[in-house]
Design a protein around this nucleic acid. Sequence first.
DNA 1: GTGTTTCACTTGCATAATGCAAGTGAAAAA
DNA 2: TTTTTCACTTGCATTATGCAAGTGAAACAC
Lengths: 145, 145
Amino acid sequence: MTKRGTNPVRRSPCPLNASVEMLGDRWSLLILRDMMLRGAQTYKQFLGLYEGIATNILTDRLRKLQAYGIITVRPDPSDGRKLIYLLTAKGIDLAPVLTEMVLWAARHEKTGNQPLIQQMRKDKEGLIAQVRQRWAATQAASAAD
Amino acid sequence: MTKRGTNPVRRSPCPLNASVEMLGDRWSLLILRDMMLRGAQTYKQFLGLYEGIATNILTDRLRKLQAYGIITVRPDPSDGRKLIYLLTAKGIDLAPVLTEMVLWAARHEKTGNQPLIQQMRKDKEGLIAQVRQRWAATQAASAAD
DNA sequence: GTGTTTCACTTGCATAATGCAAGTGAAAAA
DNA sequence: TTTTTCACTTGCATTATGCAAGTGAAACAC
């Protein structure tokens, strides 16, 4: 049951191919960004993605990320209608990937969010550790529910 | 002229968004993998991608990667029909991104290419430096043509 | 010089994915 | 009870992907 998605049919055994089959689309990556950097947790928050995501695409991606074990979902204890989406350990392990992508773009393209970029350049590992700490705190808080 | 693609219309100023607009599709990433890790340089070599890419998709992606300044193309001096595609400095700067993606997949999925993964785990920075050296050597060789 | 092969596509078409916007049903609030 | 909020679902148009045949130019073989 928990191993539902563990034996998918892949186009090759290459590790990068496994990555891109799960992440090789921009919406998944943008969702993960908002979870990691902005603490987004609800459907409505994801709908507010700055880039503008369609409801059917959001639903589809959340389902996929869940199936891949990258995120998990639970009801909000303070509002039975709301769902809370959380990164799993597998999900938070994507922090270095997203960090490197941000740094790459910042080096080669005109982009915003300069404070974050400065921080990443100054102490990449420290920022990743910080993201992990916030995630761990979220885990502890939701385990208490 | 060389700045042709520098002012694209982006859905947001976020650096990650810039990354995913250029890389947020699996074929581009797989092409880059083969360039970086296997030294693939020709259309025919890319057609041999283990995952199987269609000619029209390959052509499209090569054009896009070129437009984004990630790769460059020149004729093969030994065969006027052949084109040689090479990573640019911007392209080789994606090595840490791909490396982190490989490591992530290796940690959480059953994948092949264990020797490469062992090497990455042992000395990530060393491997990236090695990829860069091979690229620099390719640059020197093609500048001599 | 002619015919054949190789190279990098291009094309036509079917299928799949994306995106817009209206609609839906259930839970919570008023 | 009615209204609002939540997380979708749906219908349909547009765009992207994928298969496989086709194309034109350069290089090779004779």
